[in-house]
Nucleic acid binder design. Structure first.
Lengths: 189, 189
DNA sequence: TCATATTGTACGAACATTCAATCAGGATAA
DNA sequence: TTATCCTGATTGAATGTTCGTACAATATGA
């Protein structure tokens, strides 16, 4: 039972590493097996197909990122502090997990993308969306569509994290703070 | 001579359409040929390889997008108006050319990405970068790194355009104006 | 002894690329 | 004008490789 978990996890981790480095096309199942230290055939014991493996990986990565951000989410604080905390955690997560960021970005612009899967995983972020919705209702932030708010949070953070990973920028804690200040100015009412 | 241009262009256009719809992996050279109405072999008369074709397509698309934005760029206007005009044009371009946006996004997170190519094409946008740099020096906008400013312009616009193309949002002219207002609040000093 | 886990090989499909053969049409010579 | 030649354009089948997946065989452990 523990073996199952370990080997399955090893396969997912190997896939994440290789896909983030070489893309979907550049990542053969045989290479995933080699990286994970298992035989080629065993992958099909745990996953139906390459599509299924990638679906699972996407759900897993999204789940983990949501859990990390929600871990320090404290609904009792003032809304403005909640939003800033969410942003900080998203930035922190993206900067610490470049492989995940690159993979998620690749997934969402690839043929592996399935709206059904996206609909599922977006539910992980329900509390965050609810937080912004509350702020909107209380007229603390501008009356902009959720997707615009999401772009200014998730997409900006992941774009910057990718640039950091590529060495195009050096995102210090202080700079991240200033970016969050700027984003707050953007959405505050 | 004219034939050469036409067939080459047809191949590039076919590649753009198919790659934006099916990704790099899902786009076989034979399919590009079929879509372009030419034989499979002729592609190698105009391009060295699939890599070379994709490089060329990326440069072409970037060039076109830069030209479109720079067309209505008027250096004599006040800096704030210049920046708003640039944003408007970028949004307009992204919303009108979803295939190009999706392709560019895919390219930059794919194994086809080459820093050397990116360095080349980024020069097309020199006047735009200079505009923001001037605004920064005159302390009209915040003292943030170029890459952060770029993220808040190009990346936000292209992310939103992708969501629009996917039907997740309806970006009316009025909404785009409000987003630009918000972005301006983010970067203004 | 039986179910599950694991291996490594093998198969068929898809793919990028090559190439010998053909075509088109302009230049040249008679 | 007509015939000949030549060069680049174009074709489509062939090639060699890679890949996803299936599977028969073996190991493991309860």
């Amino acid at each position: 039972m523990n073996q199952i978990k370990d080997k399955r996890t090893a396969i997912l981790e190997a896939a994440l590493k290789l896909i983030s480095e070489n893309g979907f096309h550049g990542t053969a199942m045989s290479k995933v097996a080699k990286e994970a230290g298992v035989s080629a055939g065993i992958i099909y014991h745990y996953f139906d197909s390459k599509d299924d493996l990638i679906d699972d990986l996407y759900r897993t990565v999204k789940r983990k990122s949501a859990d990390t951000v929600l871990e320090s989410y404290d609904q009792s604080r003032p809304l403005r502090a909640q939003i800033r905390q969410i942003w900080e955690d998203i930035f922190k997560y993206c900067l610490r997990h470049p492989q995940e960021v690159i993979f998620m970005e690749q997934y969402s612009t690839s043929p592996y993308y399935r709206a059904e899967v996206e609909a599922d995983v977006s539910q992980y972020f329900t509390p965050i969306i609810a937080c912004f919705e509350r702020a909107r209702q209380e007229m603390i932030i501008k009356d902009l569509p959720q997707s615009v708010i999401a772009t200014l949070t998730l997409n900006v953070a992941s774009s910057l994290a990718q640039k950091q990973a590529a060495g195009l920028i050096n995102l210090t804690d202080e700079l991240v703070e200033r970016i969050i200040d700027a984003l707050w100015e953007a959405i505050r009412e």
